[in-house]
């Protein structure tokens, strides 16, 4: 069943890619789930057993109103309420860059989820580099629309940075999708760090 797209529906390229690659009927934990939009689609379109974690009370009310189970919590404090490997997917969609302890958060996600899905704005995107180079100021873009002093995005990273992080921490990259400013995905990994506005990774703990 495809959920109806009402007038308030915002098109998220990363949603489409995530939904596309998630298996029917599996268990999903969405960290920083906002108003539950992605979870709602996963539940209605992929019949998943979904659950969210969110910090903002107004967003939580929206989730509850949609019938989505949600837990009010701060993901920087970890996932103590969740058992090891208890979810098929743990999602951190466009939230990594606002965490205070990204390394800890990712470790917790890999503990709880068999597969972890992470997406973040790519700071290596060419127009961002050019803005830095020519204007000499922190770049403001569609995916990073804030001034340096009011941005919630305190962890800026590039696609290459994330790959390096995975290598360093024995994390296996199962799938890498590079999303462009038009919402499409890039075919060539080699140019992703320059041409993609957003990185989307499916990762798992490397077998030891």
């Amino acid at each position: 069943m495809i959920a109806k797209k009402d007038s308030t529906f915002i098109y998220h390229a990363d949603y489409e890619r995530i939904i596309e690659h998630i298996k029917q009927g599996c268990k999903v934990l969405d960290l920083g789930c906002g108003t539950g939009e992605l979870l709602y689609r996963l539940i209605t379109e992929k019949n998943v057993h979904g659950r969210g974690v969110e910090i903002n009370e107004q967003n939580i009310l929206k989730c509850i109103g949609k019938g989505i189970p949600v837990f009010q919590g701060n993901i920087d404090e970890g996932l103590a309420e969740y058992q090891d490997q208890s979810y098929d997917y743990v999602i951190l969609n466009q939230t990594l860059q606002v965490t205070h302890k990204p390394e800890f958060v990712l470790k917790e996600m890999l503990r709880v989820g068999k597969t972890v899905i992470v997406s973040f704005p790519n700071f290596g995107y060419l127009p961002i580099r050019l803005k830095m180079l020519f204007r000499g100021r922190m770049p403001i873009t569609k995916t990073l629309p804030f001034e340096w002093y009011d941005t919630p995005n305190i962890r800026l990273l590039t696609i290459k940075d994330f790959r390096f992080f995975c290598e360093l921490h024995d994390i296996k990259i199962l799938r890498e999708i590079s999303i462009t400013s038009r919402g499409g995905s890039l075919r060539f990994k080699a140019v992703a760090n320059l041409a993609a506005t957003e990185g989307l990774f499916f990762i798992t703990k490397a077998a030891t």
Binding site: I60, C63, V70, Q72
Partner: peptide
Amino acid sequence: SKEIVKALMNNDKDVSYVEI
């Protein structure tokens, strides 16, 4: 309250938690 929620989640029950 979190202990209750955790135990319910361990059973995959439909539970939401709000900390006001």
